[in-house]
Simulated assay, not measured.
Amino acid sequence: MSLILPILPVLLLVGAGYALRASGTIAQPLWAGIDMLGFRLLIPAMVVHAIYHADLGEVAAGPFVPLLVVALTLVALGAFLLRLVMPGLPDASFTTIFQTGTRWNAFIALSAAEQFAGREALAWLAVAMAATIAVINMVNILVLEIWGTPPEGARTGLGAMFHSVFRNPMVQASLLGLALNLFAVPVPEVLMNTLGMAAAAALPVGLLCVGAGLMPRRLVSASAPMWAGLMLRPVIAPLIFAAGAWALGLSHAAFLAGAFVLAVPAAANGYVVARQMGGDAELYAAILTWQTLLCLPMLPLVAFLADRLSA
């Protein structure tokens, strides 16, 4: 019961978001603006705030980031393996399996980490975001450039890829936080307090948006590519990281943060990218809905593993 209680606020906020959208209390068109508020202001503020206060020396000297990169790389290779063993898999569906396997939802990861391990885990997750978000975006856009079928008139090529990646508020916030931390830039207290206030709103607003995005009708969209995508995340991916974290003796907070990166659902913005660049957007929505429902009860199990196996 002690492991279930920390996830209840997350479940309740996700459920509240769904209820507010399904009941029409907050109309569907308004959720796009709320989601954009979180994506462009609240979450970036939290990322800058967390990275600025993180002890990057401890992270850089340890195996956390290399292990996280290795785990994500193995998940990406798993998507290519599925392409080989499923010869009839359409290119667009492959890009979606790749995206839903490698992208991760910072809203849920940050909230779950704070509930289970407090501020220390948030610092590790902030570093995980700084180390992986830009690379994940670039690799996914490259995969879509090669195997996707972009709509007529859409921008393509390496220039468009870098333009898309570095316009991402999460990438910008990660780079800004890293620069402020590494160069020990003094930030006025009033500005840091402002970032802290915005950061405090980021997680509840983000979880409400996750709930509002749930579409139960997509649960019946069962297909072989969908089940293949679900095996990568949230089943195989966190087990890969957990095995490496146990072997390397990561601390509890680092173990939990990295496992949550690989256990939470894919980032919702991948759906928009799939739609714009010729991926299978409907498959993305179906996998994302299932991932969200499956990952929430799995997070206490991940926390249990971290409790038992971490140093």
Rank of each mutant, 00 (worst) to 15 (best):
S2D: 13
L8Q: 13
P9V: 08
L13I: 12
L20G: 00
T25G: 01
Q28D: 10
P29K: 00
G33E: 05
G33N: 04
I34E: 04
M36R: 15
L37F: 04
G38N: 14
R40P: 00
L41T: 13
A45G: 02
V47I: 15
V47T: 14
H49E: 12
H49F: 14
A50E: 10
A50L: 07
Y52M: 07
L67F: 09
A71H: 05
L72Y: 02
A76Q: 01
P87A: 03
D91G: 14
D91K: 14
T96N: 04
I97A: 02
R103Y: 02
W104Y: 12
N105Y: 00
F107I: 11
L110T: 11
A112F: 05
A112Y: 05
R119S: 11
L125H: 09
L125W: 07
M129I: 15
V135M: 10
N137D: 02
V139D: 04
V139H: 03
L142N: 14
L144A: 13
W147Y: 15
G148Q: 05
T149P: 10
E152Q: 15
R155E: 08
G157L: 01
V165G: 06
P169N: 03
S174F: 00
S174W: 01
S174P: 03
L178R: 08
N181A: 12
P186T: 13
E189S: 12
V190Y: 13
M192T: 08
A199Q: 04
A200L: 09
P204E: 01
C209A: 13
G211C: 06
M215I: 09
M215Q: 13
P216Y: 14
R217N: 03
S221Q: 07
M226G: 15
G229L: 08
L230M: 12
L230F: 06
L232Y: 05
L232G: 02
R233E: 01
R233V: 01
H252E: 10
L256G: 10
A257E: 07
G258R: 04
L262Q: 05
L262V: 02
N269C: 07
V272H: 05
Q276K: 08
Q276S: 10
M277K: 15
Y284R: 08
T289K: 09
T289A: 14
L293A: 10
C295Y: 03
L296E: 12
M298Y: 15
L301N: 01
V302I: 15
L305E: 05
R308V: 07
L309E: 05
